[in-house]
Simulated assay, not measured.
Amino acid sequence: MVQGKRTTPNYKTKKFVYRNEDEWVRVEGTHEAIISRPQFDLVQKLLLEDTRAGAEDTAVHPYCGRIFCADCGAPAVRKTVRSGDRQYVYYVCSANKSNREACSKHSIREDVLNSAVLATIRKQIELALDMDRALQDIEKLSWERFELRKLDANIELQNETIQKNNNLRLGVYEDLQNGILTRDEFISMKLEFASRIAEAQKVIEQLTHRKSEIQHGLSKQQSWLAQFREYENISEVTRSILVSLVERIKVFENSEIEVVFRHKDQFTDILTFLEAQKTHTHSESKVIPMPRLEVV
């Protein structure tokens, strides 16, 4: 919801003055969303990616926009090689394909890639489910509530910063009127306070966005770990699995890969939270380290 697009100079006049867009008041979460915030953000990110189907294909390949050269960072491209009656599919560094001196091949066969990625995703899902069970043993969705308390505290701190700088801004206006400050000093200080307020408002917007994501999970009685439960028994790598769980796949020389997962920050936060709970309760339960690298 957006408010404050226009105002009046004072209560004595009915003439409206339109404000700049950066002065509008925006409040998120006032209307029920048609789709969830995580789904919306994922779709927006996919729209920015260069994902095109090949000339002979009717659909985007699973790894499109997800696989890159580990050294130069260029996207890996899909290449088909025929040998007699057999056909082999490889992924190679696109920079090398354009210019062999730019980078080495970083080649990996598609069936080998599928096996390695599938095994790594299964391990990550297993870890996620272990985390989910551990959280439920402590208190149902307690991690989300813990995060919400931290976010609320930070939002309150930013609001205090805004209030403080608003008061300071009013104070310098009085100093100008009383001749304590020159016009140039007043403008400089006013801009400084406005900058601090804008920065605090930006932080609040980011924190509110994060809070909205967590609250969506709470309202549905599930956390973001639920998507891992959805893929608990996967038997093959599909496009939907990759765009939901994987940020990118890095291909090294000798067909080594690294799978970088989405939500890695949340994984780290939950591991930290579980370790803190373990220390607090003197539990002997063991947290499994997060798998990241699969070598083929």
Rank of each mutant, 00 (worst) to 15 (best):
F267S: 01
Y88G: 03
F146H: 15
Q206H: 10
A74Y: 00
G73N: 02
G73D: 02
T279Y: 12
T120R: 13
F273A: 00
V60W: 02
R26E: 12
L168R: 10
F40S: 05
R145C: 07
Q124M: 12
L148F: 05
C72V: 03
T7A: 06
V251T: 05
D152I: 00
T208N: 15
G84Q: 04
C69N: 00
Q39G: 00
T208L: 07
K5T: 10
N167F: 06
P75S: 05
I288C: 03
Q177I: 14
T161R: 12
G217V: 03
Q87T: 15
T30D: 06
Q44T: 08
A119Y: 10
E232W: 08
F261A: 04
R82F: 12
F228W: 10
E236N: 09
K220I: 05
V295S: 08
E49Y: 13
L42H: 00
V203P: 00
W24D: 11
G73Q: 00
Q222W: 05
Q44H: 08
D137K: 12
G4D: 06
S285M: 09
T8R: 12
R86H: 13
E284G: 14
Q177C: 10
L129M: 13
M1I: 03
E185K: 12
C64L: 00
P75D: 01
K140H: 09
A198C: 06
S142Q: 10
M131K: 00
V117L: 03
A116V: 13
D137A: 14
V60Q: 04
K211S: 09
Q215M: 13
K220R: 12
I180F: 14
K264S: 14
E147S: 15
Q177Y: 11
E174H: 08
V172T: 11
R19N: 15
H282Q: 11
Q44Y: 09
A134D: 10
F261R: 01
G217E: 05
R196L: 13
N159Y: 11
T182R: 06
K140D: 04
F252S: 02
F267W: 09
S283Q: 01
D85T: 08
T120N: 14
S212D: 12
N20F: 11
C103I: 04
R100D: 03
H61C: 07
Y63S: 03
E253Q: 11
A200K: 03
V2I: 15
I214F: 07
V89S: 02
M1D: 07
A198K: 13
C93T: 01
V295H: 07
Y91Q: 01
Y63T: 02
K250A: 07
K286T: 13
E28M: 09
K123T: 04
M1A: 10
T58M: 06
E199G: 04
I204H: 03
G4V: 03
F68H: 04
V237C: 04
S115P: 01
V17I: 15
T58V: 07
G179M: 05
V259W: 02
L225G: 08
D175N: 11
S142M: 09
L245H: 04
L245R: 00
D152R: 02
Q277N: 14
E213V: 15
R292A: 05
G217P: 04
C69L: 01
E101T: 08
A128Q: 05
V203M: 10
S283Y: 01
